[in-house]
Design a protein around this nucleic acid. Sequence first.
DNA 1: GTTGCAAATGCAACAATATTGCATTTACGT
DNA 2: ACGTAAATGCAATATTGTTGCATTTGCAAC
Lengths: 141, 141
Amino acid sequence: MPLTERFTTLLKNHGLKKTPARLRVLEILTKSSQAIAYSEIEHQMKAVADRVTLYRLLISFEEQGLIHKTFDHQGTAKYALCQANCDIHTHHDEHVHFNCTQCNGTFCLDTVILPAISLPKGYSASSYQFAITGICKNCRG
Amino acid sequence: MPLTERFTTLLKNHGLKKTPARLRVLEILTKSSQAIAYSEIEHQMKAVADRVTLYRLLISFEEQGLIHKTFDHQGTAKYALCQANCDIHTHHDEHVHFNCTQCNGTFCLDTVILPAISLPKGYSASSYQFAITGICKNCRG
DNA sequence: GTTGCAAATGCAACAATATTGCATTTACGT
DNA sequence: ACGTAAATGCAATATTGTTGCATTTGCAAC
Ligand SMILES: [Mn+2]
Ligand SMILES: [Mn+2]
Ligand SMILES: [Zn+2]
Ligand SMILES: [Zn+2]
């Protein structure tokens, strides 16, 4: 299935209107092998949309389960497409994120298995975020 | 040992000069049961120091291993005293952080045991950040 | 206790990130 | 083709964090 067609159904399935800005963001995120920062997305947008539109679009995408957001070791927000079938109610893509201190890249590690954690009494968990900081495979000599 | 005296040795041991702003920050962090945000520290400082001084002071403290920094579920930086004997070279206090979605509190959970994680080939880890999001013990009905 | 100097601070300016209100435009079901 | 809710653009504002530089201060050596 061609990309544009996939994006069209994706947007429709999540109750979002098809607009040039949204298609462009989906394209950018699809072609990226990493989670990417707002500034990088804006850069690649090449003025397809206003900054505010981009922010609001990312919020919608996250709310509707098209993308997820993670903060890297420096606190920078990074966005990536959801792999699983996430929707407005639940994100199903809890996975490890790897942050490289050399290239500042953020990778979604879907293959790593998250071990169970037992919390102290009184706390109730709704989601987990596991991040690992180090050197990524691209940056190794 | 009285607080001020403890702070004095703490600063000296880490090669930092004793100043009113630094003593105040140590006091604020000592008295807090949670990791707290820059804005909260600034608020409690009551104009003991300039904003820039506070930022620079926090950077020094972190570099020298007096405090550690974590990002909550909203990406807000939160600071807390190091429990272990951390220094300029290594932080020894890798523990789970709990972020409450109701009060926005961030708790250092020193008792929770971090399970081992095996990474895919090519990645090498230097540190881990495990955060749990949910409802804290104070916010439960 | 005086001195010297690196460290720490204050102030101004700047940069990045993010949000809000409101008028205008657009997508899309009918 | 039309009507309307959703999406966008623009201006203004807020928060967070950084940088350069002049001044002050802590503290070790004398
Ligand atoms: Mn991810
Ligand atoms: Mn902590
Ligand atoms: Zn890398
Ligand atoms: Zn709470």
